[in-house]
Simulated scan of single mutants.
Amino acid sequence: MIDTETAIRTGTAADAPAVAALHAASWRTAYAGIVPPEALGDGLLAERRELWELRLTVDYGEPAATPLLLVAEDGSGEPVGFGYLVPQPDGRVLVDNLHVRPGLTGGGIGTALLGAARSWVASAHPGAALYLEVLRENRRAVAFYERCGGVRTDERRAPFPGGFELPEYEYTWARP
């Protein structure tokens, strides 16, 4: 069950450093033994920081095309998880990232973030399906998405920086 002190809010550009650090820590934990070790090395935090500074400062134009960052915070205001939702040209919304601070997984934070994502899609993009991509070997995440009602709708290979590819699944939540 999610801690009653955990709150979910809309993220801002000021969240970039904390989200980047959480993102890198989550990758190092979830992807250890799945992706090549060099992909999780010293440059990962700087890459994530650059990514989040760009994502959270770019002007996407019209509101319907603008992604949303959801940040889960503990009672002290410390980020403990995040989700990043990106409207797609095909009318669906991609959960481009859903991460919970290592050591806090299994406590309901991911479920709360996914629920907030689904609620946002229902109100901001009525009728749109929510979907995400997950590495096939990330078995804990695959099991989580299936428990949360996601339906596997595709399989493919995901390209990564550094020139390698890994098998991934696509999970979709039906349009409300």
Rank of each mutant, 00 (worst) to 15 (best):
residue 40 L to M: 15
residue 28 R to D: 08
residue 47 E to G: 09
residue 66 T to G: 04
residue 24 A to I: 08
residue 44 L to F: 11
residue 90 D to G: 08
residue 63 P to T: 10
residue 38 E to V: 12
residue 86 V to C: 06
residue 27 W to C: 04
residue 61 G to I: 08
residue 71 V to G: 05
residue 53 E to D: 13
residue 75 G to A: 10
residue 75 G to R: 03
residue 25 A to D: 08
residue 35 V to N: 00
residue 87 P to C: 12
residue 32 A to Q: 13
residue 68 L to H: 05
residue 18 A to T: 01
residue 29 T to Q: 10
residue 40 L to H: 14
residue 63 P to C: 09
residue 58 V to A: 14
residue 35 V to E: 03
residue 79 P to G: 11
residue 55 R to K: 13
residue 26 S to Q: 04
residue 58 V to K: 13
residue 17 P to R: 00
residue 77 G to A: 11
residue 83 G to Q: 03
residue 64 A to S: 13
residue 41 G to A: 15
residue 77 G to H: 12
residue 62 E to S: 15
residue 42 D to S: 09
residue 80 V to L: 10
residue 48 R to P: 05
residue 51 L to I: 13
residue 63 P to H: 04
residue 69 L to A: 05
residue 38 E to Y: 15
residue 61 G to A: 11
residue 55 R to G: 01
residue 57 T to Y: 06
residue 23 H to L: 06
residue 55 R to D: 04
residue 33 G to M: 08
residue 37 P to F: 07
residue 88 Q to Y: 05
residue 17 P to M: 03
residue 18 A to K: 03
residue 44 L to I: 11
residue 27 W to N: 04
residue 62 E to W: 12
residue 88 Q to S: 14
residue 88 Q to W: 08
residue 87 P to F: 10
residue 19 V to Y: 00
residue 90 D to A: 10
residue 55 R to M: 14
residue 46 A to Y: 06
residue 59 D to C: 12
residue 71 V to Q: 05
residue 63 P to L: 10
residue 45 L to N: 01
residue 45 L to K: 01
residue 76 S to P: 07
residue 18 A to W: 00
residue 63 P to R: 13
residue 64 A to E: 14
residue 75 G to Q: 03
residue 33 G to V: 08
residue 31 Y to D: 00
residue 24 A to S: 14
residue 84 Y to I: 03
residue 41 G to Q: 14
residue 23 H to Y: 04
residue 40 L to R: 12
residue 64 A to L: 10
residue 17 P to W: 01
residue 34 I to C: 07
residue 43 G to Q: 11
residue 58 V to P: 03
residue 89 P to A: 13
residue 38 E to P: 08
residue 49 R to T: 11
residue 56 L to Q: 07
residue 75 G to W: 01
residue 51 L to K: 12
residue 17 P to H: 01
residue 31 Y to H: 09
residue 37 P to M: 05
residue 54 L to D: 15
residue 23 H to G: 05
residue 58 V to D: 09
residue 34 I to V: 10
residue 85 L to P: 01
residue 41 G to T: 12
residue 34 I to L: 07
residue 71 V to H: 06
residue 55 R to H: 14
residue 89 P to W: 09
residue 51 L to Y: 13
residue 81 G to Q: 09
residue 17 P to I: 01
residue 68 L to T: 13
residue 55 R to C: 08
residue 23 H to A: 07
residue 24 A to F: 06
residue 61 G to P: 07
residue 24 A to C: 13
residue 81 G to V: 07
residue 28 R to K: 15
residue 46 A to R: 11
residue 64 A to V: 11
residue 82 F to V: 06
residue 33 G to N: 06
residue 36 P to A: 10
residue 85 L to Q: 02
residue 67 P to E: 10
residue 22 L to V: 00
residue 26 S to K: 02
residue 42 D to F: 01
